[in-house]
Amino acid sequence: MTIAQAVRTPEFDAQEPAPAGPPAIEVLGADKVFSTGVRALTPIDLTVNQGEFVTLLGPSGCGKSTLLKMVANLIEPTSGGLMWWGRDYGHVGEEGKKLVFVFQDPTLMPWSRVRGNVRLPLDLAGVPKAEGNARVDRALAMVGLEKFDSSYPRQLSGGMQMRVSIARALVTEPNLLLMDEPFGALDEITRNKLDQDLLDLWFERKLTVVFVTHSIYESVFLSTRVVVMAARPGRVLREVVIDEPYPRDDAWRVSQRFAAYARDLQVLLAEASVSGAAHE
């Protein structure tokens, strides 16, 4: 039995319809060749529907960050294009079409207190102080940092700094969250906790999330759909729908079905690195 056959377990039904909701993001044959000549991505087709939690899972260098940055309009595709809520990027930012990017590092201003850091996007947009402060309070409550609003970033742990970064993203009341390995630098216990909190937030506030990760377990725990990518050249290998109702909690983490999904993704990733090597 080949590896390719091995992964065709019942859970793997790429034909399964994606969760309802109009498309938030459409990647239409977009590829990327950097000026250095590196081909980071072959043409990608991917649709993220409103209300989905999609993770991009793949080995280092497969172009996950590149794809996410294209979705954030931080870099332009070499050819092909993207659509945001069915239109071009010019309309992003309107009501119901707000997008934020959460970096791998907390990326906080060290000279500014937690409140100032979280309020930054509102200050830049000219939101009045009083209204801004009320929204900051709500965002800080969402990440459980109400008591730390007047601390400096250096006085917080790595996990707390990451929460500040997420609060800063939430304060703009976004519809779409783009997260590039946001918890990659944290220990497992902290990471699990933040994953749970993020998931609850996504569920309660009906957000759409595109989440980059190296971790199979994180992707199975969080996603409605995992997009498995392979390197050299960067491409989408398979999309796997994680068919498990929400809200999810630790019981899901230790369930049989969770383990089955994790094993299948493990096999797929092994295939990804084999087929990647074949291209070299």
Partner: peptide, 26 residues
């Protein structure tokens, strides 16, 4: 200037003056 912060400012459509006062000067 921390390039990540610069990206953050750009993504929030900060003006050059805001970038100078709130990011570069501090």
């Amino acid at each position: 200037v921390n390039p990540g912060l610069l990206n953050l400012f750009r993504m929030n459509r900060a003006t050059r003056l805001q970038e100078l006062v709130r990011l570069r000067i501090p």
